[in-house]
């Protein structure tokens, strides 16, 4: 073989790699392979027909689009929250900081019920929004709200340490060159925190794709309209259509992997450019 074994100065590579692979195998590779193997019982044409079913495609569209928009929304507002938390000190900052992690902690069903309660036509926010003809709960908007709620901590927590460590002198240098706040932000600060924000976006996106608990409470769950992929899978399972469920599961898996892989490459590029 042309590959030469390179000796590394840092010890422990073999051990840690071995442990990582074992761990990943037990937790990720083996269960996912089982899923793929199960789906492999289907012939290709059967598989294909299951997927291009109109209802399945609609669910994919709803899942991916709403997750994307929710993650994009969090990208912006998560950045703003991370910014105030790491840049300024104000009354109640500690409390806000602690609140950020709540979406991680509370059961998603509870979050879904609480959100649908306040956004329902009788709820505090829902009744107000209804005056403008905006319906959130029991519609597509509900899915978005639930996903935004679930994904917020990811963006805030990845951006916060990076913003805190930004070199103040860069901003001062830009100011001395005549830049105003917006120019400093978009030309100097933003490129530095972009890789971290992208990580937060990817995490929120990945988490959102799999979200089930909160959405089924706030969405109307109407096929073709507001039915998400995880719900469709559960429905198939309830009808003992295990093959159909696994086919959708595998497709979801592949799509998610491709997207995350792409985001990782983009992030690697942004980071390299910054580090060099």
């Amino acid at each position: 073989m042309g590959v030469k074994k390179r000796r590394t100065k840092l010890p422990g590579f073999g051990l840690t790699l071995g442990l990582s692979i074992t761990y990943m195998s037990l937790l990720i590779f083996i269960p996912l392979s089982a899923l793929i193997l199960y789906a492999a019982h289907l012939s290709f044409t059967d598989f294909w027909e299951l997927i291009i079913n109109e209802r399945v495609l609609a669910a994919f569209k709803i899942s991916f689009l709403s997750t994307f928009w929710a993650a994009a929304f969090n990208f912006i507002f998560g950045l703003i929250i991370a910014w105030i938390l790491s840049r300024y000190s104000f009354f109640g900052k500690k409390i806000i900081d602690a609140l950020i992690d709540l979406p991680f902690a509370i059961p998603t069903a509870v979050a879904g019920i609480a959100l649908s309660y306040i956004f329902s036509p009788n709820g505090i926010l829902g009744s107000f929004l209804q005056k403008f003809g905006i319906e959130i709960a029991y519609s597509k908007g509900g899915i978005l709200i639930a996903l935004i709620f679930i994904g917020l901590p990811f963006v805030v927590r990845t951006a916060q340490p990076v913003i805190a460590e930004l070199d103040k002198e860069l901003e001062e240098a830009a100011a001395s060159l005549g830049a105003n706040f917006y120019q400093i932000f978009f030309k100097v600060i933003f490129p530095s925190i972009f890789p971290a924000l992208l990580t937060g976006f990817a995490l929120a996106f990945a988490r959102g794709l799999g979200e089930y608990g909160s959405i089924i409470f706030i969405s109307s769950n109407m096929p073709y309209e507001s039915e998400i992929v995880p719900l469709l899978i559960v429905k198939k399972l309830l009808q003992f259509d295990y093959r159909g469920a696994s086919a959708i599961g595998v497709t979801m898996l592949v799509c998610a992997f491709i997207l995350l892989f792409f985001i990782n490459i983009l992030q690697g590029y942004a980071k390299r450019r910054r580090k060099n």
Partner: peptide, 20 residues
Amino acid sequence: KQTKDRKVGFVFQHYALFKH
């Protein structure tokens, strides 16, 4: 007056170049 309006060139000890 704000820094940006002073027309001063400032050079820092640690260069403060825009890395990207």
